[in-house]
């Protein structure tokens, strides 16, 4: 199988890159994503706040994704959803897996728009046990908003990035008790806008210059030890859930051994972490236009 332009990841960036590549004249585009529906993480972001720059209004994640998907429907961009890209090779072939089989796909250019993964607590030197009840913030968002799964009741959040703040609000609105956000720095890790919307109105405590040094609990987590970094004082806080918002890592594992070939483009959060979807989209549109042009004609 062949395609001129393969885009890996049908989130906001992948869809935006596909649209702009189509509009720039590329007529053979395949957009692959492991999820069963387009939008990447947008479908799990039920809160408003997307699209102020791009659309001049505040949309929810699913609405934002739907707008991109509707525009794509009017193009000839092909979707391969429920499709895992297993390998991308230096000879411009990729191996795709879905329920019908493996496909070896030859492409001329490739845009990687695979987003980010969340840094997990395993990467930190945290002592203690390894019980159930520890989730990443994005994971709890997907659990609650897409699968109706309830992560816990007495929740401590480690990290004060945007995802941590957004989930603190959702937990609170869902009747859960957010004990605090714990932030190692002296200031909030995310955007001021999210602090004013998600933290202040609900009087959720934020403990600055504080971190989690130990996890307690045998089966399920039943508490953590907090360390106040300036005083060195430690205290044990009971909780039944620990949610981590430790930051995002661009997901470039698929291309890590390829170097920087001219046919490879990066778009969206796997290029760099964006605070706003509009900025990821604007950048991806530029990438899409560059990738629309055949390499031999670009010279």
């Amino acid at each position: 199988m062949k395609t001129e332009l393969l885009i890996v990841g049908a989130g906001a960036a992948g869809m935006a890159a596909a649209l702009s590549a189509w509009e720039a004249g590329c007529r053979d585009i395949l957009l692959a994503d492991r999820r069963g529906l387009p939008g990447g993480i947008l479908p799990q972001c039920l809160h408003k706040g997307f699209g102020l720059a791009g659309y001049g209004t505040e949309l929810t994640g699913p609405d934002y994704a739907a707008r991109l998907a509707q525009r794509l429907e009017k193009t000839g961009v092909r979707f391969a959803l429920g499709t895992e890209v297993l390998e991308i090779r230096g000879d411009k072939t990729a191996v795709l897996s879905d329920r019908r089989g493996l496909t070896e796909l030859c492409f001329d250019r490739l845009i990687l728009a695979a987003g980010c993964r969340e840094k997990s607590i395993g990467s930190l030197p945290v002592a203690g046990t390894r019980p159930a009840g520890i989730f990443t913030a994005g994971q709890t968002q997907e659990m609650m908003n897409l699968h109706g799964q309830d992560p816990g009741k007495e929740i401590l959040i480690l990290g004060s990035g945007d995802l941590g703040m957004i989930m603190a609000r959702q937990f609170t609105l869902a009747g859960k008790h957010v004990i605090a956000l714990v932030e190692k720095d002296a200031r909030c890790g995310g955007m001021a806008r999210n602090f004013h919307r998600c933290i202040e109105p609900y009087a959720i405590p934020v403990l600055y210059r504080t971190t989690v040094t130990q996890i307690h609990g045998a089966g399920r987590i039943n508490g953590v030890t907090l360390r106040h970094l300036d005083s060195g004082r430690e205290e044990r806080i009971p909780c039944d859930t620990l949610v981590t918002a430790l930051g995002l890592i661009p997901e470039r594992v698929l291309v890590r051994k390829l170097g920087e070939p001219v046919w490879l483009f990066l778009a969206g959060n796997c290029r760099r972490v964006h605070d706003l979807v509009d900025s990821a989209v604007a950048e991806a549109e530029q990438v899409g236009r560059s990738a629309a042009i055949r390499l031999d004609k670009a010279l």
Binding site: P131, A132, G133, Q149, D150, P151, G152, K153, E154, G217, A218, G219, R220, I221, N222, G223, P238, C239, D240, T241
Partner: peptide, 17 residues
């Protein structure tokens, strides 16, 4: 569960803190 009774994944488990 994650690894047996008491390590339920959802609902905050069955801890008595």
């Amino acid at each position: 569960t994650k690894d047996g009774a008491g390590s339920e994944i959802l609902g905050g488990g069955r801890n008595e803190n």
